[in-house]
Simulated scan of single mutants.
Amino acid sequence: MLDDTDRRLLRHLLAEPALGTAELAARAGLTTATCWRRLERLTERGVIGARQAVIDWRRLGYEVEVSLRFTLDKTDPRAFDEFLAAARTVPEVIGIETFLGRVDVRLNVIARDMKHYQELYRSRILSLPHITDIEALMLVATIREAEALPL
């Protein structure tokens, strides 16, 4: 599906997503027109979903990150949909993932500090529907975040 030129282009794009097409083409050793066509083709195929800004929420004053694992009441056929809809309304929820297994849903939640997290947990998290169990894991350190793929 990908040739060496596509991989080289994607490596440069992953390293600096804000590059303009002309600069990206120069770094990848392509003409601007060829680079643009390849980017369009990769986007049409769904390889490139979007170029997006990555915001460091810590620099915005959020010091606490907690991963909450939920088991939901599976006897209610609406449990997943209603839980997910309610979780989407909590602004401090920065990630929602669903799983097969003992854990049904994981929410990644940020807070300014422990007091803010405690208020958020009591007022917004515990009021989410269909919860039968919650496990909280507080982030201590991020050792590695994959920012590049093995291309």
Rank of each mutant, 00 (worst) to 15 (best):
M1N: 12
D3R: 08
D6C: 05
D6H: 14
R7C: 03
R8E: 08
R8G: 11
L9G: 03
L10E: 10
R11K: 09
R11E: 11
E16T: 07
A18Q: 15
L19A: 06
G20M: 04
A25F: 04
A26R: 11
R27I: 00
R27Y: 00
R27G: 00
A28P: 09
G29V: 07
L30H: 12
T31L: 03
T31M: 05
A33G: 14
A33V: 12
T34S: 13
R37C: 05
R37A: 14
R37E: 11
R41K: 14
E44T: 11
I48Y: 04
G49N: 13
A50H: 01
A50E: 04
A50D: 04
R51Y: 03
R51C: 02
I55Q: 08
W57L: 11
Y62I: 00
Y62L: 01
E63P: 00
V64R: 09
E65P: 03
V66L: 03
L68K: 05
R69V: 05
F70E: 07
T71L: 09
T71S: 10
L72D: 03
D73K: 09
D73M: 12
K74F: 10
D76Y: 03
P77H: 08
R78A: 15
A79S: 15
A86K: 14
A87W: 04
A87F: 03
T89S: 14
V90R: 04
E92Q: 08
E92H: 05
V93D: 03
I94C: 01
G95P: 04
G95V: 01
I96Y: 02
I96C: 03
I96F: 01
E97N: 14
E97T: 10
T98H: 00
F99W: 12
L100C: 01
V103G: 01
V105G: 11
L107Y: 06
L107W: 07
V109W: 06
I110F: 03
R112F: 02
H116D: 15
Y117K: 12
E119C: 12
I125R: 04
L128C: 06
P129G: 14
H130V: 06
H130A: 12
T132D: 10
I134L: 08
E135W: 05
M138H: 09
L139N: 08
L139R: 15
V140R: 15
A141Q: 13
T142L: 09
T142A: 09
I143T: 14
E145C: 02
E147P: 02
A148F: 10
A148M: 14
L149I: 07
L151F: 11
